[in-house]
Amino acid sequence: MNIFFNNDSENLLHDYLDLTTSSTLPQQIAQVVSHLGPGSLTAGALNRAADSWSRSVAHSTGATAEQLHSVAALLDSMREDDEGLAAHLGRLR
């Protein structure tokens, strides 16, 4: 997923977040941000990047779950078709 921010620094932070899989990363960023000044551009960029990363992870997790449900439904359908075919062939003997 490509998300482009206002400047190269924010894009660089987002790229880093995309490569990081730690679920504690947003909390770690919040700790860093708390040590920066309230008007800090770096704090703002970190917050925006962490929010975007969290939304991307949630979206990805949801899409993966949806795909797995779809595959499970397909496998159930194939199993039912296979059992029906086996029963039909059994009657032909």
Rank of each mutant, 00 (worst) to 15 (best):
1 M>H: 09
23 S>D: 13
49 A>L: 01
10 E>K: 04
74 L>Q: 15
78 M>G: 00
75 L>H: 09
38 P>H: 03
55 R>V: 08
8 D>T: 14
71 V>W: 07
55 R>N: 07
2 N>W: 07
73 A>P: 01
74 L>I: 05
23 S>Q: 12
54 S>N: 01
88 H>Y: 14
41 L>N: 09
25 L>F: 09
66 E>D: 14
90 G>Y: 13
87 A>L: 08
50 A>E: 03
66 E>G: 02
13 L>W: 01
76 D>G: 08
81 D>L: 10
33 V>W: 01
52 S>E: 10
38 P>R: 02
15 D>T: 09
1 M>F: 06
68 L>E: 11
24 T>S: 10
33 V>F: 01
20 T>C: 12
40 S>H: 05
7 N>M: 02
85 L>W: 05
52 S>C: 02
29 I>F: 03
48 R>A: 13
56 S>I: 01
30 A>E: 13
77 S>N: 14
83 E>W: 06
30 A>L: 04
74 L>D: 14
70 S>H: 09
33 V>M: 04
80 E>H: 09
49 A>I: 01
19 L>D: 11
93 R>W: 08
29 I>Y: 00
46 L>M: 06
56 S>H: 06
37 G>K: 13
39 G>A: 10
32 V>T: 10
71 V>H: 01
6 N>A: 15
18 D>Q: 11
15 D>N: 14
39 G>W: 05
66 E>Y: 05
30 A>R: 05
68 L>F: 07
73 A>Q: 14
78 M>F: 10
84 G>L: 11
31 Q>F: 09
42 T>E: 14
91 R>Q: 09
44 G>R: 08
53 W>T: 01
24 T>G: 09
44 G>K: 11
17 L>G: 00
57 V>W: 04
76 D>I: 01
19 L>P: 00
66 E>M: 08
23 S>M: 05
91 R>T: 13
11 N>Y: 03
14 H>P: 00
55 R>D: 12
45 A>C: 02
45 A>F: 02
86 A>N: 06
19 L>Q: 15
44 G>H: 05
89 L>F: 04
66 E>C: 02
21 T>Y: 06
55 R>H: 05
8 D>L: 08
53 W>I: 00
50 A>G: 02
56 S>V: 00
62 G>R: 11
55 R>Q: 10
86 A>S: 15
85 L>Y: 08
76 D>Y: 05
69 H>S: 15
45 A>M: 12
50 A>T: 03
25 L>S: 04
27 Q>W: 04
80 E>S: 13
71 V>T: 11
21 T>M: 11
41 L>D: 11
64 T>N: 13
64 T>A: 14
27 Q>Y: 13
21 T>Q: 12
82 D>V: 10
6 N>C: 07
15 D>W: 08
53 W>K: 08
71 V>Y: 03
76 D>Q: 14
49 A>F: 02
86 A>I: 03
36 L>P: 03
1 M>D: 07
6 N>G: 15
22 S>D: 13
90 G>P: 01
71 V>F: 06
16 Y>A: 09
59 H>W: 06
18 D>K: 11
48 R>W: 00
3 I>K: 10
58 A>E: 14
